[in-house]
């Protein structure tokens, strides 16, 4: 019974609050001999696995370290040249891995988590899904998306009459998240709307609200049922 994320989306589809308690997958470190048996490509400026699986590393994992040294942004390896300590040579990881002389090589892989920008993009996407699914429904007055289920998670959405959407993403085995969402709406009313410094539809930056949401999610994860 785990809640991975909770989001609040305003009427225009903008993300105004997000709470992330997604468990982090452990990093995986593997030693490779030539030729490397995972296919890597630069995606979003990061060396990403696009084919192959090994020791838990799957498609979508990103290389973050090479021989114990963190990669520089853009997937480059910084190494001091032998001639001078001040001089730094920069090599692309993919070029480095193409050279047989560099093997064996130790790589550390990381399963990417959602960045803030990605969460904003996902919220806007969901806003569109909500409207489109209402339009495409074969039954009248069905409203937008309430539940989005897959084998790895379940997303539930509650849209208040004011148009704000409250989303929770949890484990597929999680009990229904309706109570959590309604409680979240209640907390939003108490801590955000009653805050005289809060501008409507802007991101919520309120310590009391953060604490209340954290306690709410913890209570929900413990018992699965929320009483007053």
């Amino acid at each position: 019974m785990t809640v991975y994320y909770t989001f609040i989306i305003n009427r225009a589809g903008g993300l105004i609050y997000e709470y992330d308690c997604c468990p982090r997958a452990p990093d995986v470190e593997i030693s490779f001999n030539y030729p490397i048996d995972l296919k890597l490509e630069m995606i979003d400026n990061r060396p990403t696995v696009v084919f192959g699986e090994k020791n838990g590393v799957q498609v979508g994992y990103v290389v973050i370290e090479c021989n114990g040294c963190p990669l520089a942004p853009g997937g480059r390896i910084d190494s001091a040249d032998d001639d001078s300590l001040a001089k730094t040579k920069s090599t692309k990881l993919l070029d480095y891995l193409a050279d047989e002389a560099n093997y064996p090589v130790l790589l550390k892989f990381w399963r990417p988590t959602l960045s803030t920008n990605e969460k904003i993009i996902l919220s806007s996407m969901f806003h569109s899904f909500y409207a489109i699914s209402a339009q495409l429904s074969p039954v009248p007055n069905s409203g937008g998306i309430q539940v989005l289920e897959s084998t790895t998670y379940r997303l539930q959405c509650f849209q208040a009459l004011t148009g704000n959407k409250f989303l929770a993403v949890g484990d597929p085995t999680c009990p229904p998240l309706d109570q959590l969402l309604h409680k979240l709406h209640e907390l939003y009313s108490d801590y955000a709307l009653k805050n005289p410094f809060y501008s409507l539809d802007m991101p919520i930056r309120c310590d009391l609200f953060d604490q209340a949401v954290q306690q709410l999610v913890e209570r929900f994860e413990k018992s699965g049922v929320l009483l007053v």
Binding site: G60, G143, L148, E149, S150, T151, T152, Y153, V169
Partner: peptide, 19 residues
């Protein structure tokens, strides 16, 4: 959307509305 929320993309999923 699925792939971002979970890299292990499923072959099947479902989207529910009220009806």
């Amino acid at each position: 959307f699925n792939e971002k929320l979970s890299p292990l993309g499923p072959r099947q999923c479902s989207v529910s509305t009220m009806k």
